[in-house]
Design a protein around this nucleic acid. Structure first.
Lengths: 153, 153
DNA sequence: TCGAGTTCCATATTTCATGCGGCTAAGATG
DNA sequence: CATCTTAGCCGCATGAAATATGGAACTCGA
């Protein structure tokens, strides 16, 4: 399945403004609203568009601290990985978690109110997760680039 | 400015489905569409909602490789930081970039097609950025948790 | 008790999404 | 070359939704 120029434009615009009206989207691309609607439905059916979401301001919500945590597991039992993954998915503070190749096992991205909240999170949540042996925390001092759109062009 | 239970519910639902109809949002919360509309407009005006975006599937778009890169700068000139930040914002492969406290200066998150594309990106983009002294790359083997909603409850 | 402010709602108007039928162009087939 | 088929696009009509307006109920403080 190939994407033509119009498809990419649709995806690009929708990434920036997911609530744009179909008619406006159509005139910005140069096709009729009907065509755009059909294309968009196809893009969703084919799995290019997974959904839509509001972009919230974390600082406005009292989540002023962004941290990345490198996590090392005890390698003894292999199902430690599975249990750790399950625990991570249940923690609302954790926005992302990835298994990586290299000097550690998981990279965790989390948002919290402040350092006090982070210390509690580290002790009560992260270090209490099954199989966690060691963590290294990196607190973000400045967010240079945040949630950039995927390059579709 | 305080958020009550209805506000939080609006934000929570909109994070998951940014295109939900106002009427449906209203009945899921238990208020009239008019009230929900007023609240939503206020939430945008006050900066809680910054915008809306489509969630695209990176793998479907040929961006199968997710990497995190730790970057160290030459600390000689202070405006190196500023120039590096500018360069990062212009690179479409870079989805996030944060200045961190700890063993390195910046953490970069980038999506690329594959390792070949990453090697090109590393050489032609990252290492060519002003003031970059050293990088450590961590390729993601498995995405445990991706783009979780902010906890608003 | 009175007035101001806030929150909510019902209604009306406008705007939008969507389904349907028709049109055209490109490619396949005899 | 004629014809058939398919895909993509469009206009139009209909139903649904967003939004503006006016007004009711409630809170709070003077």
């Amino acid at each position: 399945m190939e994407l033509d120029r119009a498809d990419r434009k649709i995806l690009s615009i929708l990434q920036e403004d997911g609530r744009i009206a179909n008619v406006e989207l159509a005139e910005r691309i140069g096709l009729s609203p009907t065509s755009i609607g059909e294309r968009l439905k196809r893009l969703q059916r084919e799995g290019f568009v997974e959904g839509y979401g509001a972009r919230l301001n974390p600082h406005r919500l009292g989540l002023g601290l962004l941290v990345f945590v490198e996590v090392l597991l005890d390698k003894t039992t292999p199902d430690n990985f599975e249990r750790f993954a399950r625990a991570v998915k249940l923690a609302p503070e954790v926005l992302e978690c990835h298994m990586v190749a290299g000097g550690f096992d998981y990279l965790v991205k989390a948002r919290l109110a402040d350092m006090t909240a982070y210390r509690r999170f580290l002790g009560e949540t992260l270090l209490s997760m099954p199989g966690v042996r060691e963590t290294r925390t990196y607190a973000v001092m400045e967010e240079i680039k945040r949630d950039a759109p995927l390059p579709v062009g």
